[in-house]
Each structure stands twice: as C-alpha cells, then as structure tokens.
Design a protein around this nucleic acid. Structure first.
Lengths: 146, 146
DNA sequence: GGTGATTAGTTTAATATCAAACGATACGAT
DNA sequence: ATCGTATCGTTTGATATTAAACTAATCACC
C-alpha cells in the first residue's frame, strides 16, 4: 500500500472514531444535563459512587482532570448538597469527599439512565461487532498510553 | 444472550471506545498546544484552511460550537494576527473570517504535524483493522446522529 | 413601503479547564 | 529536633464553553 493510501486510511479512520465518540458522548451528556449535572460533576459523583469516599487528588486522577479544577467542581457539588468534604484526622493535608444521601440517590438514578442510553446506542451493533470494536479500540488505546 | 450480558458488553465497549478516542485526542492536542494553539483555535484555522474564508456561523457549525464561543475564539486569533474579520458588503450581518499569511503558514505546518501524529497512532492497526474500525464507528455514529 | 419575523454576531453569567504560584501539612535524613 | 523536600489543596489568570438575552441587519409579506 502506498504512503498516500496509508495516510488517507489513517485519517478517515481517525475521523470516524472521533465522530462515533462524539455522538455517543452527546447522548450521555444530554442525560446528565437533564438531571442538572455537568459532565465533570457526573464524573465526580460516579467515582464516589463506585469507589466510595476519595480525596480530591484521587478524584482528579480518576477523571483525568487537574486538582485545581476538582476544587471548583467539588465546591459546586458541595453548594448543591450532593457531597461533603471531611478533613482527614491522620493526615490533615487530605480532604476526603463523601456523597450525601441526596447525592447518592441522584447519582444512582442518573447513572442508571446513562447506562441505558449507552446500551441503546450500542444496540446498533451486534454482539460480535461490539467485541471487534472493543478489541480494536483497546489495541489503539494501549499504544497511545505508552 | 442475557440482558445482563448485553449490558455489560455495551458498557465495556463504550469505555474502550472512549479511551481510544481520548488517547488519540491527547496525542494530537499536544501537537497543537506545542504550537501555541488551543484545540478550538486549531479547529477554526483548519476549517478556514480547507474551506476558505467562512462566516462565523459556518465556522461554529463546522466545529460544533456555539456562535458565542466562536466570537471569543476569533477574537483571540485576531489578536494573534492569524485571522482577520471582514464585513460582508452585500449582507452586512455577516463577518467573513480570512486566514492571514501568518495564519496560513502556521496552520499548514501544524496540520501536517497533527496528520503525522494520527498516522503514527493508527499504525498500531493493520489496514484491514483500520477499515473494520472505521466501518463500525461509522455505523455507530450514524445511529446517534438520527 | 412599512411591520413582523428571522438571522448574524456580541455580550453576559455560569461552569469548566489548565498551568503555575502558593500555603499548609507531613515526612525523612541527619 | 530541625531543615529541606514532597504532597495536598487552593488561588489566580487565561481560555473555553454554553444558554440566553440582546443588537443590528435583512427579508417576507401584505
């Protein structure tokens, strides 16, 4: 295959990958905003929901954002009464973030809706196609991480 | 296949798709920021580079952002001397945005670098795998657009 | 021709986002 | 013990982003 053909194929593949990711994101983010959550807020709540209380540094690492950013997102979640901060008594540098009852109820509901949206979206592909897509995406993702 | 299995497959496929898209984006965005461009600024310059002068509404549609956002991005590009605005003489509501010489030179260089990064990234997959990935992504993207 | 609806772009207010500087706390080595 | 280093979180300044209110210009229709 010529260099030009290789390049063209890579670029169209890249574009299709990006479009697919964007349209999937657009579906799920509609669910989140309908519930009054931003994507970041959802990310934080979802991390706490599945991993339990976390310090802000761990939350930042989990959702791939800066710690400065997390400070603001947690501020807003705290104002809405969805999470609360608790100073670690052993190492006072840490702030452990906990879901409140309201926060737990909300993320449980919204997470289920997001899951349903994803399942509905992916239903376009057969099980075999999904497995193939997943395998190729994983191969691609691993390379880039290196 | 059971509902639970269907759901699990859809969710892991979705996660892998997102991770692949993120890692590909991370590579290309490094090239852009190294050149002093934000992702949006690159998007605007690239649109003008390949489509010629455009009005702000068309730029917004092309890079899927709000017109309010485009106003700011063009403001910053204009300050940097990479684009200039020109009021349309026929319909004075329109502002046509043009690349300057500096802007053209910059986007030509950066776009080539981004392309190279994409080609290098996709080289992880064989041509056949890329075609398969592209086909599946397209199928998925089309559904969501509907 | 004049009025009402539409369209292009700007502004505003809120949240997001990062990098970098900073303050407070903890830890390690001597 | 303490001095230097590392770590956690906040702050700051810049850009991004949207939705919604707004201005200016045009068009459609009577």
């Amino acid at each position: 295959m010529s260099d030009t053909t290789t390049k063209k194929l890579a670029l169209t593949t890249y574009t299709k990958l990006m479009r697919a990711a964007e349209s999937a994101t657009s579906r799920t983010s509609k669910v989140m905003t309908a519930a009054g959550l931003t994507i970041s807020q959802f990310g934080v709540l979802e991390a706490l929901y599945h991993k339990g209380p976390l310090c802000q540094r761990d939350i930042a690492a989990k959702i791939l954002k800066s710690t400065g950013n997390i400070t603001l997102v947690i501020d807003n979640l705290e104002k809405s009464g969805l999470v609360r901060r608790e100073r670690d008594s052993e190492d006072r540098r840490f702030l452990t973030v906990h879901l409140t009852e309201t926060g737990t109820a909300l993320i449980a509901k919204v997470f289920a809706e997001v899951e349903a949206a994803i399942v509905a979206d992916l239903a376009t592909l057969t099980a075999e196609e999904q497995e193939t897509l997943g395998r190729l995406c994983k191969k691609l993702g691993l390379k880039s991480a290196a």
